[in-house]
Computed example of a mutant assay.
Amino acid sequence: MIIQAEHVFVEYGTSVVLKDIQFQVNKGDYLNIIGPNGSGKTTLIKILTNLQKPTQGKMTIAPVVFGYLPQHLNQSAKLPATVYEVLKLSNAKRPSNEAIDTLLKEMEMFDLKYHPMQRLSGGEQQRVYIIRALLSNPDVLILDEPTSALDPNFRQFFYSYIEKLNDQGMTIIHVTHDLSDGLRHGSKILELDQEVKFFGTFEQYQLLGHKKGGHHHHV
């Protein structure tokens, strides 16, 4: 067990952001967190990454290393740093040049190693942050709507790469609003709208009629 949520509430004054949330994440899970805007997804991630505490209930988190790829990355893109500097200096444990080069090659970014971050496209910057999250050798990788900036070709590559990490035992927590993205078979779904609307496997979710695109047409 890596994460256990028991009756978690988050309230701001009279408004309830998360209501009686219960779920658990085991080692090696691939959990997709879905739900409309304002459903509490971001608040839940803040609790998981220890930026916020529940107002009620209990969130138990095993002592594991989290890698986190936030949704909004543009702040540090304004720094006059190169790709290499961002990767070398951003971790407490300075990663080896070898580890950096390997990931740059895997992400097809090696030629841009000494380019300033400012000169990269949004999708390229996103790849740098993916590499940065992986350099800490995380046990759990949290991806917050990771493909919003990625071009479609790279998006395919990105998801097969994440699935490979998951096959190797890394636990993936993937926040998305697009159900067609990254829903690997055997993965789990946590559907939020203040409270848990659904928690179970992707296959169970489909059986309940949550088909991609939503509506069924009777012929």
Rank of each mutant, 00 (worst) to 15 (best):
F9T: 08
I189P: 07
Q52A: 12
V65S: 06
R94N: 13
G186E: 06
Q118A: 12
L44W: 06
I189R: 06
D20S: 06
Y129P: 00
A5M: 07
L183T: 08
S96C: 02
P80I: 04
R127T: 01
P116G: 02
S148L: 12
Q4M: 09
L143S: 05
P138H: 04
R119W: 03
S187F: 05
Q168C: 11
N32R: 13
S96Y: 02
V16H: 05
P138E: 04
Y129D: 08
P95T: 01
A99G: 11
V17H: 01
P152C: 03
V175A: 04
Q206K: 11
P70H: 05
F199D: 05
G123K: 04
Q4S: 14
D139F: 08
M117P: 08
I2F: 11
K41Q: 02
H216E: 02
K164Y: 09
I3H: 03
N26C: 08
G28A: 06
K78Q: 13
N153L: 15
V10H: 00
S121M: 01
K211P: 05
Y84R: 04
I34D: 04
H218M: 10
Y159T: 02
E191W: 09
P152M: 10
S90Y: 13
T82V: 08
F9H: 12
Q204S: 15
N37S: 14
E11N: 14
Y12H: 10
S96L: 05
K188W: 08
Q126P: 00
D193F: 12
N37A: 05
V10Q: 09
F157N: 13
G182M: 04
L141I: 07
S121V: 03
N97F: 02
Q24I: 08
P36N: 09
F157H: 15
R184D: 03
P80K: 01
Y129K: 09
D101A: 10
H210P: 09
F66A: 00
Q168F: 06
T102W: 00
Y114M: 12
E203H: 01
K93G: 02
M59E: 07
Q24S: 14
R184M: 15
K188F: 02
V25N: 08
D178I: 15
K211W: 00
D29C: 01
L44T: 06
I172M: 09
G122S: 07
V17P: 06
H185Y: 12
H210N: 15
E98Q: 11
Q22K: 14
K78M: 14
P95D: 06
K105I: 13
I162R: 02
T14F: 03
K58T: 15
P70F: 02
